[in-house]
Design a protein around this nucleic acid. Sequence first.
RNA 1: CGGGAUGUAGCGCAGCCCGGCUAGCGCGCUUGCCUUGGGCGCAAGAGGUCCCGGGUUCAAAUCCCGGCAUCCCGACCA
Length: 564
Amino acid sequence: MRLSKYFIPTLKEIPSDALIPSHQLMLRAGMIRSLGAGVYSFLPLGYRIIKKVMDVIRDEMDAIGGQEFHLPALNPLELWEETGRAKDFGDTMFHLKNRPLVLAPTHEEVICQIAKNHIKSYRALPQIWYQIQMKFRNEPRPRSGVIRGRQFFMKDSYTLDATWEGLDKGYELHAEAYKKIFTRAGLKYFIVGASSGAMGGSASQEFMIESESGEDTCAVCDHCGYAANLEVATSNIPKAQREKESKEIQEIHTPNVGTIDELKEFLKVDERFLAKSLVYMQDKTPVLILMMGNDQLNETKLRAVLGADVRPCRQDELLMLTGADAGSIGPIGLQGFKIIVDKRLKGGNNLISGANKNDYHLGDIDLQRDVKVDGYYDLRIINAHEPCSKCNSPLRIVNAIELGHIFKLGTKYADAMHAYYLDEDGKEKPIIMGSYGIGVERMMACFIEQNHDKHGIIWNKALTPFHVHLVMVNSNNEKVVSVAENLYTKLQQSLIDVLFDDRDDVSPGFKFKDADLLGIPLQIIVGEKNVIHGNVEMKDRRTSKREIVELGKVVSFVEKYLES
RNA sequence: CGGGAUGUAGCGCAGCCCGGCUAGCGCGCUUGCCUUGGGCGCAAGAGGUCCCGGGUUCAAAUCCCGGCAUCCCGACCA
């Protein structure tokens, strides 16, 4: 491709709306342009890279037996009502105004519908179906360039199985394929256990890259490799120590003490003797939740215990139900409450908690003696430096970007849509599904986040838009022009993708800057000072190492480089 | 959806408080000359709904009201 004819509008200055490196560089390198919040046009160079990413994904999906589909983005609203997900997605799904159609944010329903109509026997299972297609989500706040957009490419795949062992196998195949995809794409990633959320199902893992601009938070152990989304992460933080003697409950006057920190200061006691109370509503049942000290409640963990519909109790409800305001609530003397306790408090005695009377607390509560506990669960958000639950090394808390997510769905969709097959005994059974996604633009953006310097992007061989960047330095020098033109032809004849900077109206410095910005990993620099000796210069974009190569050996040099 | 900021040429910005002459600067763009190993120089040009609508005023980019858009923080995020 001749740069003089190719549409690559590079920018010298950084557009002010772009804050993170990948977004800035994608704009500056002429790969994308914004059309509206969270909506991007891919220009020719950017789309070339998208296609490279898709190639890698497609290759590995085909390798595990995936069959590529192309499913419609327009879906009947009715289909989404069948599974109840029209309501679950709510405003996140785009609805058309002039027909009862929606723009699909994912494709479980469509897949399940096809399976329902055509998979009638266990003999037709298992199946791995996938597609790489545009997804639409009405994100309330798109951000970080293409990392969170309102429309984006996703590779989504689905396993259909007759047995739970089959699901496990399909899930494992995907986990392995994903590792290969991200490794080939040159991404430094880690895998975390994740919440399966409203997708339902039993197991779920996310493929993440660590990034300051990430929207997810993960706990990571650098020692043993444990990593988990904070939604589900656990640690070995010390539990309550039961004291030898349980003292008698006593009322303590605590005027103007609201928060745990104030209580700690007022009573001069260790945080681990304090039991913080929170009240949530599970349908019409109030639930009192006890946490140790100032431990924060993890709502994802809470929902896993109580169901998705729990909500924090309102202030007016709180006063009516307990007779006190937040800050003076406690587990003693409540009527009609369910009481659940964070595991960390298990066995605790001589604890201090609210008295359900404003400005009073109760001291020396023994959970075993005084409280009817409906269950102990892990409910807390872990903090940095807490000991790893596997190896006790201090955990790090990092921001991360989710590149891929794999789910064991089970029969949720088959049940809702009556997608049944006949098993060996002629019995009707629901098809067991798994669902697996990769964000295509995110792979591209994350690669740039991890591979750039102050001059621009540094592609690797798998994702680079062209194999080599041929820079003709002195376009007024006949010898240089003829050598560069000749090389361009020869390289193309050897099936090497060349971006040829043949512009004659641009100074050498400009060409070098553009080459570094675009980041093609190997630059061939044809300039006067080397050409007169029958040589050209090879520059490695990543290391900036330069090597002088004889003209006749350029093609074989490049071929060797590409194979290495 | 709550909080904050911004909106002036393709891009980056100044001007706005404190209303007033033809709305300005850098980059980019066009033309000519020049230059050719790190965003080159000189000269001449083109390019504007000052986000939109309303109001105040002799006079509005500037003040007031309403709206829209974009970005950031938070909430949300299968």
